[in-house]
C-alpha cells in the first residue's frame, strides 16, 4: 500500500501541471455562485443566513462537473499508452486505482472548500448555524467521492475521453433522477411502493438533503462510502480483465 503515495502525488499535481485545474476551479466557483444568486437560488431573498441556496444545486452541478474531472483518470492513460508503463511498475491494480481516485477526490474537495468565502460572507451578514454548514460540507465531499467513483469506473472502460464523459454523465444522471419526486411518483404507479422506495433510496439527492439540514445520519454516510467502495472494486475488475 506504500505505493499509493507516489501515485497520488503524481496524479494530484498532474491537475495543476496543466491548465485543467485552474479552468475547472474557476468555472466551478463561477457556476456554483451564480446559481446561488440566480432566480432559482434566491440567496438574498431567502432572508436566512445559510448556504442552503448554494448547496441545493450541488447534486446537479456535480452531475456535469465530476465527469469532467473523472473522465481523464484512465482514458488519458490508455490513449497516451502510459498505462503500459504504469502497470509494468511494481504496483497492484488496487494501489493504482486508489492512488488515482484519492487524487481526484482531493482535487474535488479543494474545489468544494474554495467556496468557503461564501460561508464567511454569510457569517458576516448573519448568524448561520455553523454545525449545519459543516455537515453540508461533509455531505458534499462524500457525494463528490461517490460521483467520482462512478466516473473513474466509466473512464476505465474506454480510451476515448468523449465517450468516457458521456457515459459518466449518463450514469451520474441516473443516480440523481432516481430521487426526483416526479420520477418516484411514476415509479410508484408501476411498482409496489416498497420497491419504488428502495429504488429512490439510491438517489444522491435524497442522501445529500439530510446533510444540508445538518443531519449526519450514519445511513447516508455509509451509502456514499459503500458506493465508492463498490465502484472502486468494479474499477479494479474492469482494469484486470
Amino acid at each position: 500500500m506504500s505505493q499509493i503515495r507516489p501515485l497520488f502525488k503524481r496524479e494530484f499535481l498532474g491537475y495543476f501541471r496543466s491548465p485543467v485545474a485552474y479552468v475547472f476551479l474557476v468555472s466551478f466557483l463561477v457556476i456554483s455562485v451564480s446559481l446561488a444568486f440566480s432566480r432559482y437560488g434566491n440567496f438574498f431573498k431567502n432572508g436566512t443566513a445559510s448556504l442552503e441556496s448554494y448547496f441545493i444545486f450541488f447534486p446537479w452541478l456535480f452531475m456535469f462537473i465530476v465527469p469532467a474531472v473523472g473522465m481523464r483518470l484512465w482514458s488519458e492513460e490508455k490513449r497516451a499508452g502510459t498505462i503500459e508503463l504504469l502497470f509494468t511498475l511494481p504496483i497492484t491494480t488496487l494501489e493504482a486505482v486508489l492512488g488515482k481516485f484519492l487524487a481526484g477526490w482531493a482535487f474535488l474537495t479543494i474545489a468544494i472548500l474554495l467556496s468557503f468565502p461564501m460561508a464567511l460572507t454569510v457569517g458576516f451578514l448573519g448568524q448561520p448555524d455553523w454545525g449545519v454548514m459543516a455537515a453540508t460540507y461533509l455531505g458534499a465531499i462524500l457525494m463528490a467521492g461517490a460521483y467520482l467513483g462512478i466516473c473513474a469506473l466509466t473512464s476505465a472502460l474506454t480510451k476515448n475521453q468523449v465517450i468516457s464523459f458521456v457515459l459518466s454523465l449518463a450514469a451520474c444522471a441516473v443516480f440523481v433522477f432516481l430521487g426526483l419526486s416526479s420520477f418516484t411518483t411514476t415509479l410508484e404507479s408501476i411498482l409496489p411502493v416498497s420497491v419504488a422506495d428502495m429504488v429512490s433510496n439510491f438517489s444522491f439527492v435524497t442522501h445529500f438533503d439530510a446533510f444540508t439540514k445538518g443531519i449526519i445520519d450514519p445511513k447516508d454516510v455509509i451509502f456514499f462510502l459503500s458506493l465508492m467502495g463498490f465502484t472502486l472494486f468494479l474499477n479494479v475488475v474492469a482494469l484486470e480483465r
Partner: peptide, 23 residues
C-alpha cells in the same frame, strides 16, 4: 515499451523522480 510512453505534462526530472519513488 514500444514508442516510450511517458507523462507528457511532467518534466524529465519529475518523471524520473516519480519512477524512482514507485520503484
Amino acid at each position: 515499451p514500444e514508442s516510450a510512453p511517458a507523462y507528457p505534462e511532467m518534466t524529465v526530472e519529475e518523471f524520473l523522480c516519480f519512477i524512482a519513488e514507485v520503484r
